[in-house]
Amino acid sequence: MWRRWSDLDRMFQAMDMLQDRMNWFVPEYGRRRAIPAWDSAQSGFKANLYDAGDYLEMKAEVPGIAKDDLSVKVQGNYLEISGVRKSDAPEGYTAHRVERGTAAFTRSFTLPSDIDTSKAEAKMANGLITLTLPKSEAAKPKQITINEGS
């Protein structure tokens, strides 16, 4: 039994070694690749959410979308981002290749905490939208002072 176990172990080690060798020649092998956001099969956009204690921060990819073509709605812990990606094909040109799709999209999120909607902000830069969503007072983390027992 012991002998068989070590055979198995040796086999796995050989496989690990093979993978290492493969990585040596092809460093990208086995690494998760980022998928382009505007894939025809995917009608949404990619978004990240960060929690900074007092506020939530959301970043989303919205390349080529004008400020006026985007709308952001917040209510309680519900967030909705919708917009239209219009065609920017120039007039009088022949198209050889069109990979960038055009579509209307909506995506809604349930945020991990309630938002103080009056203080929510959004700004766009380089095709990314950044939302700063301050948490409502009740949802903010509070420091609790420890009282010394008598």
Binding site: A37, T94, A95, E99, R100, G127
Partner: peptide
């Protein structure tokens, strides 16, 4: 992702590079 256009005067590329 890239769009490629051409007319008599030029080739034109539109490339999505968010961020």
């Amino acid at each position: 992702l890239v769009d490629i256009y051409e007319n008599d005067d030029e080739n034109l590329l539109h490339v999505d590079m968010p961020g």
